[in-house]
Write a protein that binds this DNA or RNA. Structure first.
Length: 575
DNA sequence: GCCGTTTTCGGCCCGACTGTTTTCAGTCG
């Protein structure tokens, strides 16, 4: 079992315990452990072998024993017993909006049904309204919830959530009386996927904001509408919330709503140490002698004796300690990027010719562009033969003369790492290119050992400069190869190859936790757009955001280096 | 069930909103 599978197992346990009616803190403990497992930067199997499971936050004696049992036997007696008491199918019901553990348990026990289909039928037949505490409205809400569930497909890629959020915010900012409107939650922290869109507004006229918000075009359902908070769902299942606070409280409110939960817990603790109680509304003195209102986040952090912490760092991964110690990194910014080392042209599956692509990149301030068209075996996208490369090289020489020094064009390749681990071109040919980026696209479902060994071959090939989108994941549908990331990082540190953060919002691969470990191990990072069109070039901020979440400074990312330094690095490699 | 520079016991997530209520329970973020 890998980190994700273990995490899902503990989430299931938490859900079943909740329906069973276990004390809330027990289920919270399982959820916390599940989250930690998912966010883990290393392989849980390695921690298990090293007997270090207890070092995972939220994993104590009991959960460590359960992980041990799962990894040894693939089964868990505790879960089997639990499933005898509570049918596992009920866990799914919790995703129906309007249904919580109490109602699930009530419906199950009173009506004796366990599947989502039976639940829908019971609601349609008017059976739910016969239960205590439930009426026609609850019944209708549950029916809508089931429909909404079939519309929704899990978490929303940030590439989809962000443009929608910008639109909503722009609309709200135009309203009279609105002083500020900002994204919050995981969207503001720039997580690669978000559960929903959270927006915070500073205004004294809450009614008008709520009116506008709930009447936005495309709204399918108003899930709630109050004075301080409203919630909507769009036709495609995306949900959005807005909170309205008076301007003088906007700082504490935005800080609170941005999270993460772990970050806020640590901040509240720090506040308590200073005799302050931090809430959504204010910083109150715990002795009751008054409260401080904060209009900006900077004031909140300053009151706690901290510099403002960028939202991307607020994951409870040491940023509060770093802020206290004055050692927060100066995070990389989009404007620091001057090279795009992974792009496609019409030589393979790109939409634009090289010169059009180079010009589009130059207009965006890019000084070096590498064309990494696909290699031979990726036939369906028109991979290049070696002969084709000769023709591409000639074209590059020609367009370089035309482009002058506005942008430097590198002749490169995205060479396929084949199922057996060999590369698609011979080493002698790779040695002739300016840059070699090697990627996995096929056979991603291989066993961990096999797929890891396969990638290791590419990591150790001296001609390979960058490993493109290392796991091959696609958000939100494909989880990516089950790599032993500890082994990959170790090998990368030895070989000096760069690992890519692919900026496509549907890849964002490496993930932040691995990128951070790579940086700590001294592995160079490369942030690239993997652009197949002009619009793709504008996805760069999503890749930079992953870098910021990984605590990267500009120096850690080869795309920020002066051209001479970058070319030197490329020359030293691949010899 | 986890955790600890005040605690090995007693805190942890609390406030807004909705619906079915008749003063509150359940859900949600």
């Amino acid at each position: 079992m890998n980190n994700r599978e273990l995490s899902e197992t503990f989430t299931l346990i938490a859900n079943l315990l909740e329906i069973k009616g276990e004390v809330i803190y027990t289920t919270l403990a399982y959820r916390k452990a599940a989250e930690s497992l998912l966010a883990l930067a290393g392989d849980v199997n390695q921690l298990w072998k090293d007997e270090k499971l207890r070092e995972i936050p939220g994993v104590g004696k009991s959960i460590a024993e359960k992980i041990d049992e799962l990894l040894r036997t693939g089964k868990l007696a505790f879960l089997a017993k639990l499933e005898k008491e509570v049918p596992a199918g009920l866990a799914e019901w919790l995703q129906v909006s309007g249904l919580g553990p109490k109602k699930v348990s009530l419906i199950w026990k009173e009506l004796g049904i366990t599947t989502l289909q039976e639940l829908a039928a019971a609601a349609k037949d008017g059976k739910l309204r016969t239960l205590p505490g439930m009426g026609e409205k609850s019944e209708a809400q549950i029916l809508r919830g089931i429909e909404s569930l079939s519309r929704r497909s899990g978490r929303i890629p940030i590439g989809r959530a962000w443009p929608l959020a910008r639109q909503i915010i722009a609309t709200l900012r135009k309203l009279p009386g609105v002083v500020a409107a900002e994204p919050a939650g995981s969207l503001r922290r720039m997580r690669s996927t978000v559960g929903d869109i959270d927006i915070l507004v500073a205004s004294r006229d809450s009614a008008q904001v709520m009116e506008t918000f709930t009447m936005l075009p495309g709204v399918m359902e108003v899930r709630g509408k109050g004075e301080t908070k409203s919630s909507i769902e769009f036709a495609d299942g995306v949900r959005a919330q807005v909170w309205v606070h008076p301007p003088e409280k906007f700082g504490t409110a935005l800080q609170y709503a941005t999270g993460s939960k772990d970050h806020n817990v640590q901040l509240r603790q720090l506040a308590l140490d200073k005799g302050l109680s931090l809430s959504e509304h204010s910083l109150a003195k715990t002795d009751g002698s008054g409260e401080v209102l904060c209009a900006t986040e900077a004031e909140v952090y300053a009151a706690l004796g901290l510099p403002w912490i960028p939202p991307e760092l607020r994951e409870g991964r040491g940023e509060v300690q770093a802020a206290r110690a004055g050692t927060l990194p100066t995070l990389i910014e989009v404007k620091d990027i001057r090279a795009d080392l992974h792009t496609h042209s019409t030589w393979s599956d790109g939409k634009l010719s090289m010169i059009d692509m180079a010009r589009a990149a130059a207009r965006r301030g890019i000084k070096v562009i590498a064309f990494t068209d696909h290699s031979l075996s990726l036939g369906m996208v028109g991979g290049l033969t070696i002969k084709g490369h000769a023709a591409q090289a000639a074209e590059i020489a020609a367009i370089q003369r035309e482009l002058g020094d506005s942008i430097l064009v590198l002749h490169a390749t995205e060479v396929e790492i084949k199922a057996d681990g060999s590369l698609d071109y011979p080493d002698e040919f790779l040695a002739t290119l300016d840059l070699v980026l090697a990627s996995l696209h096929t056979s991603l479902g291989q066993e961990r050992d096999k797929v890891t060994k396969r990638l290791l071959q590419a990591v150790r090939n001296p001609h390979v400069d960058i490993i493109g989108h290392p796991t091959g994941r696609l958000i939100p549908d494909r989880p990516g190869a089950d790599l032993d990331m500890d082994a990959i990082l170790k090998a990368a540190a030895e070989s000096g190859v760069a690992l890519e953060i692919n900026a496509s919002p549907f890849r964002l691969d490496l993930e932040d936790v691995y990128a951070r470990r790579a940086m700590e191990m001294g592995i160079p990072i490369s942030i690239n757009t993997d652009a197949h069109s002009e619009a793709d070039l504008d996805m760069l901020p999503f890749g930079v955001a992953v870098g910021r979440r990984a605590w990267l400074t500009a120096e850690d990312v080869i795309n920020t280096w002066p051209t001479e330094k970058l070319l030197d690095w490329l020359k030293r490699r691949g010899a």
